[in-house]
Computed example of a mutant assay.
Amino acid sequence: MNKTTTVYQDAIRLLYILVNGSENFKDESNSKVKGIFRGKARLYAMDFWVRYPDYFAFELIKKHEETSDHKFLKLAESIFNNNEPDLRRIPMIRFLFGAYEKLDNTLSILISKGLLRQEGSKKENIHQYDFLIFEDAYDLIDRASKEFHILKWYDDRTKIINEIAGQRGGRALKERQYEQLVYAQTKLGGIIPSIKEDVLIKLEQLMTKI
Rank of each mutant, 00 (worst) to 15 (best):
I150F: 06
I111T: 09
D86N: 01
L60G: 09
I90G: 03
I93L: 03
R157P: 09
L15E: 01
H127W: 10
K196F: 06
Y52V: 02
Y178N: 07
Y16D: 10
N81K: 09
L73P: 10
E147Q: 14
L115Y: 15
K159C: 01
N20Y: 04
G190K: 06
G169N: 07
I12R: 07
A137C: 06
A184L: 13
S108V: 06
K122P: 02
D104T: 15
S121D: 15
K174S: 13
V199A: 05
Q128A: 09
K32M: 13
K209G: 08
D54K: 04
K209H: 12
L132C: 05
S145N: 09
G170I: 01
F72K: 07
R168N: 03
D10T: 12
S145K: 12
I192S: 04
L75G: 11
L110N: 11
I150E: 12
D156Q: 12
D156I: 12
Y129Q: 15
G114R: 05
K102T: 11
I93G: 06
Y129I: 15
Q167C: 02
Q205I: 15
K40Y: 11
M207R: 14
H149N: 14
A144F: 14
I164D: 00
A41R: 14
R88T: 00
S145H: 07
V19D: 02
F25E: 07
E135R: 13
F148C: 10
L116A: 10
Y100T: 05
N162R: 10
I164W: 00
V199C: 05
N83W: 08
A45G: 06
F148W: 01
G169R: 00
E66K: 06
K123F: 15
L200H: 14
L116D: 05
A144E: 15
D155P: 03
I201P: 05
A99C: 03
E204S: 14
D69T: 04
M92S: 02
I192F: 03
F148N: 11
E204W: 08
Y100F: 09
L206H: 07
L107S: 11
T6G: 02
I164G: 01
H149Q: 12
G189S: 09
R89H: 00
F37T: 02
V199N: 05
L73K: 13
S78Q: 15
I150P: 05
W49R: 07
G189E: 05
I150A: 08
E28N: 14
I109F: 01
M46D: 14
L14A: 11
L188N: 14
Q177L: 13
S112Y: 00
G170H: 01
F48T: 02
N125Q: 12
P91K: 00
K34L: 12
R168L: 05
E23Q: 15
T6P: 06
L116S: 10
G190R: 12
K26E: 15
R171D: 10
L87H: 02
N82I: 08
L151I: 03
R89E: 00
G98T: 09
I161K: 14
A45R: 03
G35Q: 00
R88D: 01
L203E: 05
V19L: 04
L73N: 05
I93S: 05
L206T: 07
L140E: 04
T158Y: 06
K63W: 02
V50D: 03
A41I: 13
K32L: 10
L151Q: 08
G170T: 00
F131R: 13
P193N: 09
I133K: 13
R88W: 03
M92G: 01
I161V: 15
N82L: 12
F148L: 07
G98H: 03
S145A: 15
